[in-house]
Design a protein around this nucleic acid. Structure first.
Length: 494
RNA sequence: GGCGCCAUGGUGCAACGGUUAGCACAUCGCCCUUUCAAGGCGGUAAUGCGGGUUCGAUUCCCGCUGGCGCUACCA
């Protein structure tokens, strides 16, 4: 028997959009905490807003979570399939007097009755400030008779929580510390909508209780809501879990991340060709640190070092250049065998993958070549981009490279001679390749660099690539000779 | 408007009463060099403002300012 129960945490996205970096970071923290503490990571989909949910987005969210390597232990559970529980809880609360039916018409936004549009800012300037006090709802004080009358008239009722008129509600946040708010500041929030669907407040609490969640790790935007939930826990007779609110991730302009900040979805980073390892490492350091100066942390190290104590209280600005730096670091430092599958996937998608690279000598060649190319890559698609000539004969000569390295008129003769020299080479190795080229340069009284750069463009099509002679080895003698000859007609006339 | 949270270079984090305020990204320069990266070395750059408390404040307290969050029958 364990005295301390296994910690249970959860990530609870709602399918109103794709998984964005803020949600991803929250999911990551929960996952890290669960892994570190030997706990359970639960996934729950909060889809109770029938109007705004898009069920088709759920798959994308799960896919992003999988891409990040954040495997959940239980779920996904869907709130839309657990509606009876919330109704029962609402009824129980109403029966005990902790909640009451409200017959008011739903307050509307901006005159309409739709939810506020995603991207529209709150009205600028001195618009009518809202002052929703619980006293604003007359239903709180309705007599039993008046309620019966409303019912007879068939007015649909929402269920509101009866917030105490005095006193204060407090809780201890694992990140933000002791928190206390006056109950008079809390409005009588809705538990069940008049259509019978639960609101977020009821849903989370009922589910977190039912799923025996011990630590609620979520965005700091919920800090202000937490007292309501603490009140709910008490009304339900259950001890609240540990709350740990993590700071928000902001866009470069220090406002909340949104579409107009460009790429904010996890999916877009996957598509761009970032490595999940790098993405995770980068995200882990937004709002959290080990306390020391080490930033390059493998997943194992992340798990080993993660603690709620290290979580910051300051919002963080998403810094893409640093993400890119992490990516290049992982691209060149991660074990080659871990990188290979990613490169394979990218090549396959580009139609460049050959099955012969999957095993035996082909696999060895593939590993060596990827290893040769990777120091210069920034994103996965680079392997099928500027480095494609390593994997296919179908490539063009980059315009910028031609104008920069194919200026010299004598190149036509020079490369023809070089091609002949390479064709005649008995042994194809680095030093032999280099000797042929340097000897030619000396004999023709041109700089070796001229030939090296021109040759690079000829055999790889680009001006920026790995060291020439190593590239030649990767391509093999036949290819190098053929590509040299193929390039000659494209060289400037002499 | 009300309530709350936050505040170290451009950015992410350190320093949890005493450091020449540290590290990383970005940026600038140098080295290396076969293009371009990587790598090495070095430079520029921060405690928002004003009061306290203290022998001593980045650190503790108050005010201001700024940013953010909540204030929905959204989550």
């Amino acid at each position: 028997m364990n005295i301390a129960p296994r910690p249970r945490v959860r990530f609870a996205p709602s399918p109103t959009g794709y998984l964005h970096v803020g949600g991803a970071r929250t999911a990551l923290f929960n996952w890290l905490y669960a892994r570190r503490q030997g706990g359970v990571f639960v996934l729950r989909v909060e889809d109770t807003d029938a109007g705004r949910n898009k069920p088709e987005l759920v798959d994308g969210i799960l896919e992003s979570l999988r891409w990040m390597g954040l495997a959940w232990d239980e779920g996904p559970f869907f709130q839309s399939q657990r509606l009876e529980m919330y109704r029962a809880a609402g009824a129980q609360l109403a029966a005990s007097g902790a909640a009451y039916p409200c017959y008011c018409a739903p307050s509307s936004y901006g005159g309409g009755d739709a939810a506020p549009p995603d991207e529209v800012e709150a009205p600028a300037g001195g618009e009518a400030p809202r002052q929703a006090r619980k006293s604003a709802c007359p239903c709180r004080k309705l007599s039993g008779e008046e309620r019966a009358e409303k019912q007879r008239q068939g007015v649909a009722a929402a269920i509101r929580f009866r917030v105490p008129e005095s006193g204060a509600t407090s809780f201890d946040d694992a990140v933000f510390g002791a928190r206390e708010v006056q109950n008079e500041e809390i409005e009588d929030f809705v538990l069940l909508r008049s259509n019978g669907l639960p609101t977020y407040q009821l849903g989370v609490v009922v589910d977190d209780i039912d799923m025996r969640i011990t630590h609620v790790i979520r965005g700091a935007d919920h800090l202000s809501n937490t007292p309501k939930q603490v009140l709910l826990y008490r009304a339900l007779g259950v001890a609240p879990p540990v709350f740990a609110h993590v700071p928000l991730i902001l866009g470069p302009d220090r406002t909340r991340m949104s579409k107009r900040h460009g790429a904010t979805s996890v999916e877009s980073y996957a598509t761009e060709g970032f490595l999940p390892e790098a993405f995770r490492n980068f995200l882990a350091l937004m709002g959290w640190s080990t306390g020391d100066d080490i930033e390059f942390l493998t997943t194992a190290a992340l798990i080993d070092k993660f603690s709620l104590e290290g979580v910051s209280r300051t919002n963080a600005v998403f810094d893409r250049p640093k993400l890119e730096w992490f990516n290049t670091q992982y691209l060149q430092k991660m074990p080659i065998e871990s990188l290979l599958p990613y490169v394979q996937a990218v090549l396959r998608r580009a139609g460049l993958w050959k099955e012969e690279w999957a095993s035996g000598a082909g696999q060895e060649w593939f590993a060596r070549t990827v290893d040769l190319v990777r120091p210069r890559t920034r994103l996965l698609p680079d392997f099928a981009g500027w480095a494609r000539a390593f994997f296919t004969d179908q490539f063009d000569y980059e315009e910028a490279a031609r104008t920069k390295f194919w200026k010299e008129p004598r190149l036509k003769d020079l490369l023809a001679t070089l091609a002949a020299g390479y064709a005649a080479l008995a042994e194809w190795n680095h030093d032999a390749c280099e000797k042929v080229l340097r000897d030619l340069a000396a004999a023709q009284n041109v700089k070796a660099g001229l030939l090296i750069n021109a040759t690079r463009v000829a055999i790889l099509g680009v001006g920026v690539a790995p060291p020439l002679f190593e590239s030649m080895l990767a391509l093999g003698q036949d290819r190098v000779v053929a590509r040299l000859r193929r390039a000659i007609p494209h060289l400037p006339p002499n």
